[in-house]
Design a protein around this nucleic acid. Sequence first.
RNA 1: GCGGGUAUGGCGGAAUUGGCAGACGCGCAAGAUUUAGGAUCUUGUGUUAAUUCGUGCAGGUUCGACCCCUGUUACCCGCACCA
Length: 799
Amino acid sequence: MKYDFSAVEGKWQKRWEDAGIFNAADNSDKPKFYGLVEFPYPSGVGMHVGHIKAYSGIEVIGRKRRMEGYNVLFPIGFDAFGLPTETSAIKTGIHPRELTDRNINKFSSQLRRVGFAFDWNRVVDTTEEDYYKWTQYIFLKMFEKGLVFRNTALVNYCPTCKVVLSNEDSQGGKCDICKSDIVQKSKDVWYLRITEYADKLLEELDNLDYLPNIKLQQVNWIGKSRGAFVNFGISGVEDSLRVYTTRPDTLFGVTFMVVAPEHPMIDKYADKITNMDAVLAYREECSKKTEFERTQLVKDKTGVCLEGIKGVNPVTGKEIPIYIADYVMMGYGTGAIMAVPAHDERDYDFAKKFGIDIIEVIKGGDISKEAYAGDGEMVNSGFLDGFTNKKDSIAKMIEYLTEKGVGEGGVQYKMKDWAFNRQRYWGEPIPIVHCPECGIVPVPYEELPLRLPAVNEFAPGEGGESPLAKIDSFVNCKCPRCGGDAKRETDTMPQWAGSSWYFLRYIDPHNSKSLADMDKLKYWLPVDWYNGGMEHVTRHLIYSRFWHRFLYDIGEVPTKEPYAKRTAQGLILGPDGEKMSKSRGNVVDPNDVVDVYGADVLRVYILFMGDYGSAAPWSDNSVKGCKRFLDRVADLPSMVSKDAPAKLESSFHKTIKKVTSDIEEMKFNTAIAAMMGLLNEIGEAGALTAEQLETFLLLLCPFAPHLCEELWEQTGHSGFCSMAKWPEYDEAKTVDATVELAVQINGKVKGKITLPINSDKDAAIAAVKADEKLAALLEGKTIVKEIVVPNKIVNIVVR
RNA sequence: GCGGGUAUGGCGGAAUUGGCAGACGCGCAAGAUUUAGGAUCUUGUGUUAAUUCGUGCAGGUUCGACCCCUGUUACCCGCACCA
């Protein structure tokens, strides 16, 4: 029988909301469960099936937990500041505020249509004053603690978006938003000192239940390396050139040094360098290259020797040439390296091209052919000769350098400080005033929120300055410290700011005195389970852990870490197996599916299509299969009978057990498969008891809640199925009285025997010999070995 | 280049982690119902002449391997001249 899902689904969504059954209670004796999903960016195009998949996992888990008696917090909100809305505003002339409100309304109604069990009383919108007031508050706290600094630096700049991007936003040399090539530009930039938290973020990872690949990505992103700083002398002057190396023990093999094109020592010693023209020309050439060109053209090494000055090896006292080359980056280490061509591939290539000596200091390779990066005995290395263990030789050299005062051990991180400003309108204004007398002055806390001025012009200036710079009433202000004329900072925060703490605001979304009440934070934190996309594992997840840890350090939150557990869903690919995109025209709109099949079918299909963590292509036909499943479930009430066959009972207990554990492991596909299998068994049996139907509805409810509520009511229940008690199983009833064992002869399955459960070896062998067919196969053979795994298999080895 | 992952019927995917490969769904075929189509229901469906062969490919360990080991190929995802 088909049921009229459009009427049914709307009816139950309204009842849930009227009864407020999904609203979390702040004061409850029940155990708590805080399930979190990444809140969406409310774009104009509306929701994507990927959103549904991302939310469905925690949705099902949260619904199950609620039925198990937990006080569940499952909130939703909108990460609404950002470029796409601003771009759209510039195009259409509609204010970003107006567009954001429209988009949020659209998303909200779409989310409601799918029947997610969100607590709609706690919706957070990062662009509301009540919210960004606290984003600004956290920024000021960081400023106060010295974690905010300003620096002139070469930054990643997108010429199309006219905006400065963090390294995280410009991966691969492409703008994260518009995909055009990034150029390097010198700018004044606000930074957050995230590197100061690198170790803390790294250390706590051990105590967190994140998927292993997620942890690994974070570790790689932070990129901690141990090594040493070494100060090389510079010939003829009382100065040194500092380098970072992970292999200080190869110091005897250093035959040249390389500095990055932007390295300040070049300007410092401009009068000593005799070929300054060539050096400057090279530098000019490098600055024209995009980051992309510079990192992709790996093979061909270029560079210029600095004539007139030499480096002095602090261990050997030998003079060596210094080169400027773009394979050395200013942004990592000290921007200068000691080159050991015998044992570093890049240095090797460079030495070969420029005809520089190559000295072997580690035995084991053939340095006439290529660099040897492996381990081996140290040679040509003075006091290190004969060392065979890398750890020992490095420790010895660091000891030596420290003693001589020419270096020391140290660590480096690949992660860089977080470039924290954008020349944009639609973002949180940075609460800073520039005073000609006092310098950089923070806006006082009591003046927060520092509101975005209402304007009608959102396009950035040609010079790449923020649209806010054009608004005199905003820019001109009094200095909070001296009261004199001053100017406001006109840049805004990056998109990642608001999403770095939103999970805290859900706990107490309307608090006007603090970002959230401490007692409530203590009750709800940490987030028990956070699910989201793999694409946010290195950026958002690192940023928000950083902010949270900072708030912990200043006593604003009670836990070191925000998220106890983190998982990630796989992509939904288009029907063609390719990533969904407008340009490919393979995008599936969830609304179309809800229109035709209903929300329950959409939900069940998305979780049934494959392993939750893996990518899987969309298939319209498989959606129909889920539709059939639910239609058959809708027929179950007509099959209720007192004379249901007894054998169904153990199938029910098995299914309860399987669905219960599969949901916890996010194996939703096999949980649904188990229910389909049970339904097939019920179909064969032709009847089921009223209690069995009840159990079935409860198991299916987290996946297809509308249908289950409807049938729950139809079968005479009062109250909500969604609030009823999750079924329990009896372990004893999940096992059958008899089991079938496969019988192998020489490892090949030749037949089957049926035995009482837990029968021993003798019984199994006896049963095999009593089986006519199997006995015939053993006739005249010598039995070498008999292996019996109880309840599983018998294997008889014969000759 | 480095790191991680994946590879199973025509398709999406299962497999209690070393014990009957292919659960469940799609598709397909036959039948029922229908004026017909659609929808629905029933049965069948890895492959083979076979008691055969079969989890990307080549070996190995084991009574027994999709699972463990060695080598290899293809694809996917991260990072990428990180000193």
